[in-house]
């Protein structure tokens, strides 16, 4: 299954490094990534493949969210289907 990792918050050095390091730590493979900075607001969206996840989904999601909090950014991990069903007919 694939999940969408969203990282939002105030822009600063090292956000991408932190988020991708967390993905690597749990075996989540980043297959696509897009990132924008609007004014000082940072928004990154990563599509990750979770086939090789070294832990269960919930632990991965909780840990990466916690790591985000420590860097003062909001990180959410959600199954890609919620976006597909909402925005595609």
């Amino acid at each position: 299954m694939k999940a969408v990792v969203t990282v939002t918050g105030k822009d600063k050095v090292g956000i991408i490094a932190m988020a991708s390091a967390e993905c690597a730590k749990y075996g989540a493979n980043i297959v696509d990534i897009s990132q924008t900075v609007m004014k000082e607001y940072f928004a990154m969206i990563m599509l990750v493949e979770l086939e090789g996840l070294s832990t269960d989904f919930r632990t991965f999601a909780e840990n990466i969210t916690k790591a985000g909090k420590e860097s003062s950014v909001d990180i959410r991990v959600m199954h890609e289907d919620i976006f597909n069903s909402m925005h595609k007919i």
Partner: peptide
Amino acid sequence: MLNTHDVLETIK
């Protein structure tokens, strides 16, 4: 890839 706007709209 999903549209950034769509993803952020859902999160909001």
